[in-house]
């Protein structure tokens, strides 16, 4: 094993180009477990800790450019307004110690269906900035996950950042685990309201070979909200609409039975989380509308 220690982004890209099998390591929260338990013996470890660029974020007009190694703790503390779904998801990651080290780049690089960031990124809408010595490209998050623990990165590419759409409406994230802290998702669900485009986006974790969106559920809900004029009148979403949405989210799952949970449970739980997160975000949306039209008397 060789330990490569690039001091800059350019050096990192050059190292990855020279050694495409090199395994990038930043927070180490996935890679080191595999090394400690003898599951993996990469030829090269490519340490990204000295690439300062990866630890920075930038809030733009429409989106946030989130460096691949920005720790979850930073996201929770600093980007709750811009990236509320991801901030909530970050708070559910493992433990404080892990949140201090791990970042979204690692989640994307590992591409485990159980990664906590994925549902939030899918729901918010994001692009992964993949870079190599050959150049840079942005991979839409919808195209990023290609299989179980597989992604769209080329062997010589590294993730520099993720460009995530700034929230224009409420977002939520919910994750089921069999413990009240420090738990890997049995399944997870992210939801984002996009009032400007009058759309809703979803993300499902750990309930299919890859993180997925519940597209049929989104289309159903978009149409139902549109037809009922919900975006404009801010009415309470009817239980039947919420239930149909939840059922369609459950139907979007393609889960397995494993030691963490049954396939049936995962489908069921995704449905429950879909209904609840829809309620929470919609109530929040209605509350914000009332706040801006103070006849509701809330303020």
């Amino acid at each position: 094993m060789d330990f490569l220690r690039p001091a800059s982004w350019e050096e990192a890209l050059a190292a990855k180009a020279a050694h495409p099998t090199a395994v990038p390591i930043a927070g180490g929260t996935d890679v080191m477990v595999e090394i400690n338990f003898d599951h993996r013996r990469p030829e090269y470890l490519l340490d990204l800790n000295r690439v300062g660029d990866l630890y920075e974020w930038e809030v733009g007009e429409d989106s946030v450019r989130l460096g691949a190694s920005v720790p979850y703790t930073r996201i929770m503390e600093n980007l709750r307004a811009e990236l509320p779904g991801l901030a909530i998801a970050s708070h559910t990651v493992a433990s404080p110690q892990i949140r201090n080290r791990g970042g979204v780049g690692g989640n994307l690089g590992t591409a485990s269906p159980a990664g906590d960031a994925h549902p939030a990124l899918l729901a918010a809408g994001a692009e992964v900035e993949a870079v190599s010595v050959r150049g840079s490209r942005r991979i839409p998050i919808d195209d990023f996950y290609t299989g179980v623990k597989r992604n769209a990165l080329a062997p010589d590419e590294l993730i520099r950042s993720v460009h995530i759409k700034k929230a224009e409406g409420p977002q939520q994230f919910s994750k089921v685990g069999t413990r009240n802290a420090m738990v890997i998702a049995v399944c997870a669900f992210g939801l984002a309201l996009h009032p400007e485009t009058r759309t809703v986006r979803t993300g499902i974790g750990s309930a299919a070979p890859t993180p997925v969106r519940a597209r049929a559920a989104e289309e159903f809900l978009n149409a139902a909200l549109d037809e009922g004029g919900f975006w404009e009148n801010g009415k309470i979403i009817t239980p039947s609409v919420a239930k149909q949405f939840a059922d369609l989210c459950a139907a979007a799952c393609n889960p397995i039975d494993d030691v963490r949970g049954t396939a049936n449970y995962r489908r069921h739980a995704v449905g429950v989380m879909a209904r609840r997160t829809l309620t929470w975000t919609w109530e929040s949306y209605r509350g914000a509308r009332h706040a801006s039209h103070p006849k509701g008397g809330a303020a």
């Binding site: 909530i88 708070h91 559910t92 939520q172 994230f173 919910s174 994750k175 089921v176 685990g177 413990r179 009240n180 802290a181 738990v183 998702a185 429950v272 989380m273 609840r276 309620t279 929470w280």
Partner: peptide
């Protein structure tokens, strides 16, 4: 949520 079932995973705000 820290005092609710599911804890930090944010699964309920009291529902159920």
């Amino acid at each position: 949520v820290r005092q609710l079932p599911g804890g930090l995973s944010n699964t309920t705000h009291g529902e159920g």
